[in-house]
Simulated assay, not measured.
Amino acid sequence: MSTPEHMLQLWLPALAHFEPAHPLRAWLPRANRLADGGTGYLGGLGDYFPDVDSHVPAAAITREFLAGDAGGATWLSADPAWVQPDMNGVRLLACGQLQLSMDEAQAFAETLQPVFDEAGLQLRISTPDRWHLRMPDATSLPVFAAPEQALGEDLSQHLPQGVEGRRWRVLLNEIQVLLHQHPLNAERRARGLAPVNSLWLWGGGQLPDSLQTRLHGVISDDLLLRALAGRADVKQQPRTPEVIAAAGPGWLIDLQDLPASDIASSWWPTLQTLFERQPLVLHFASAERWQRKPSHRWRIWRGAGR
């Protein structure tokens, strides 16, 4: 008999994002409500990878996944970001998802290179949207907030604090001045794209020897999730309808980054087939969890909504 941990897992956006008429809603009334899981992105990752929390060394893990050279060094993510001032401060509006080309990334990085050289930091453009800093040996890092913790909020609440954090606050200020003046940002605005006017520093640390998970595999387009799977030595595949349709017990299907409307319009036919064929655990980013089995369709006495 399968336990929830060994069933096919479906990681979804927050339940409130699913309108009453969404097809997924019709499958919940006859399902078994489970204990709540982790909330949000980092909380969800921690459910699937017990070693993961807000201090996960995401930089080293993702750099190793992308380039295979993270071992033996301390790394820090420096992802391109968009910040915007308002009456109450400066807010982080986007991080690492700014539709940069590699040529653009390299042009921005070239402007910043002297600042990093002076600070003794080695900048690596791992992908256009994922940049990494290699630290000098024995570098001590302050606490950096993950993007999820800072998005939409005033930066001053999430910058590294104290004497140890001052160096990084000064560095970030220099970065923002240089990027604000970069001519590429005017071109991006003209094309209706967000400017790249900051970097978000986060996920510092060294590559862990290994990670633990009960998952057999991961289906996701999220870089960190796929990198965690790789570090835990389980299979990982990009998200396509064909791959999802073939998913079986012990796998995680990651849809938490998608709008609920996209799940209804583009992914539901594939998901409905899975619902009808095998037991699943539904984990919403707002923490609610349900277990749904094909036999639950006979629970006709259950209500018609939640």
Results as ranks from 00 to 15, higher is better:
240 T>S: 15
84 Q>M: 08
166 R>P: 01
60 A>T: 03
27 W>V: 13
51 D>A: 13
30 R>K: 14
196 V>D: 05
62 T>C: 10
116 F>T: 10
67 A>W: 02
78 A>R: 01
142 P>N: 07
247 A>I: 02
176 Q>H: 02
93 L>C: 08
165 G>N: 05
223 L>Y: 11
179 L>P: 09
226 R>L: 11
285 A>K: 12
216 H>S: 12
242 E>R: 02
112 L>A: 07
221 D>T: 06
297 R>E: 11
282 L>N: 11
225 L>V: 12
283 H>Q: 13
63 R>I: 03
147 P>H: 00
178 L>Y: 07
288 E>P: 08
249 P>V: 01
276 E>Q: 06
165 G>E: 06
85 P>V: 00
293 K>L: 14
12 L>P: 13
23 P>M: 06
136 P>Q: 05
253 I>W: 01
19 E>H: 12
287 A>N: 12
134 R>K: 14
135 M>S: 06
157 Q>L: 10
72 G>R: 04
136 P>C: 06
107 A>K: 04
204 G>M: 01
206 Q>E: 15
198 S>C: 01
212 Q>K: 12
117 D>V: 00
81 A>W: 05
295 S>W: 14
89 G>Q: 01
161 Q>G: 00
17 H>Q: 15
210 S>P: 03
124 R>L: 01
281 V>E: 03
108 F>S: 01
174 E>S: 10
241 P>T: 07
300 I>Y: 12
10 L>E: 03
286 S>D: 15
59 A>P: 03
145 A>F: 04
295 S>L: 15
121 L>W: 11
141 L>G: 11
207 L>Y: 06
276 E>T: 03
240 T>L: 03
259 P>C: 07
153 E>K: 10
113 Q>C: 00
35 A>P: 13
229 A>N: 07
306 R>L: 13
143 V>W: 11
5 E>Y: 07
236 Q>Y: 13
78 A>I: 00
137 D>F: 01
200 W>E: 02
292 R>D: 04
184 L>A: 07
246 A>E: 15
265 S>P: 09
294 P>N: 10
270 T>G: 11
118 E>H: 09
211 L>A: 04
162 G>Y: 03
31 A>C: 11
229 A>S: 12
100 L>V: 07
114 P>L: 09
9 Q>G: 10
239 R>N: 06
23 P>F: 04
15 L>P: 14
214 R>G: 15
121 L>R: 04
280 L>N: 01
160 P>K: 00
266 S>F: 10
293 K>Q: 15
45 L>V: 12
258 L>G: 02
121 L>I: 12
